[in-house]
């Protein structure tokens, strides 16, 4: 991942997002360096998913700065305002951000291999034969060699999630977002997905992960962010935030999950 042009970084200043009257993210500041692994923890409804969805451009923010891969997401900054980008330009930004959803969201009308090929072929117009070869490589790298012809319903949750990760990686993203990637899995399937994520982390991918897996956060994260009520309450190294929390709200949350 090149350090040039802020590739692989995420920066937010005073990011605010509301749904109607309801403020879901309030003055969020976030800095993710290239290759950094950031785990976001916090109770349900604290805004973890919304933050990740904003960073992926699935939700438009109300106010503040949001720069992903060194570019303002979805907008161009002018002296007096942020001007919306063209649809094509937004799509181009999105191809460099990968998102892994809690519910996998594999395309059920496509095989595992077709799912992984879908980005390169349908979005980038890459040649099919080459994309197929690449898809098989990616499936192998997530431990799913030989599953390329299977449809999502023929795969277990853990396998589906690994296909979903491969599908995102096929676009060669500089930033990967994970929204509780193991929460919908049977407990015995969690490990296989976390293993793939660890592997990715070791290869220097920038990762922003909402998770309830405290053990994983402790082991893999460079930074842990604790969110509550749409605010970043505490932020620091896993040892500090998980081992020696300063804020009472963090303590209370950690008591309930550990």
């Amino acid at each position: 991942m090149s350090q040039m042009n802020g590739e692989g970084t995420v920066h937010a200043r005073g990011l605010r997002k509301s749904f109607g009257e309801r403020v879901v993210l309030d003055s969020i500041d976030l800095d993710v360096a290239s290759g950094e692994i950031v785990c976001i923890i916090g109770p349900s409804g604290s805004g973890k998913s919304t933050l990740l969805r904003c960073v992926d451009g699935l939700e438009e923010i109300d106010r503040g700065v949001l720069r992903v891969n060194g570019q303002d997401l979805g907008f161009r900054e002018t002296p007096r305002a942020y001007q919306a980008l063209k649809r094509k330009e937004v799509a181009a930004q999105r191809t460099r951000i990968g998102m892994v959803f809690q519910s996998f969201n594999l395309f059920p009308n496509m095989t595992a291999q077709e799912n992984v090929m879908s980005g390169p072929v349908l979005v980038k117009g890459a040649p099919k034969a080459e994309s197929r070869r690449r898809a098989d490589e990616l499936l192998t790298s997530v431990g799913l060699q030989g599953h390329g012809d299977h449809y999502p319903w023929q795969l277990s949750g853990g396998q589906q999630q690994r296909v979903a990760i491969a599908r995102s990686l096929a676009m060669d993203p500089s930033v990967m977002l994970f929204d509780e990637p193991t929460s919908a899995l049977d407990p015995e399937r969690v490990g296989e997905v976390l293993a793939v994520m660890k592997d990715l982390a070791h290869r220097g991918m920038t990762m922003l992960i909402a998770t309830h897996e405290m053990g994983f956060a402790r082991e893999v994260a460079d930074t842990v962010i604790f969110m509550d009520g749409g605010l970043v309450v505490e932020k620091g190294s896993p040892a500090d935030v998980l081992g020696n929390p300063q804020e009472p709200r963090t303590c209370k949350f950690l008591e309930t999950v550990l």
């Binding site: 969805r53 992926d56 451009g57 699935l58 649809r87 094509k88 937004v90 799509a91 181009a92 930004q93 999105r94 191809t95 951000i97 990968g98 998102m99 959803f101 519910s103 969201n105 594999l106 395309f107 879908s118 980005g119 349908l122 979005v123 979903a164 599908r167 995102s168 676009m171």
Partner: peptide, 12 residues
């Protein structure tokens, strides 16, 4: 979620 997955890939 299907639409979001497609959007996330940058599909037109």
């Amino acid at each position: 979620g299907q639409i979001e997955a497609a959007d996330s890939l940058g599909m037109s």
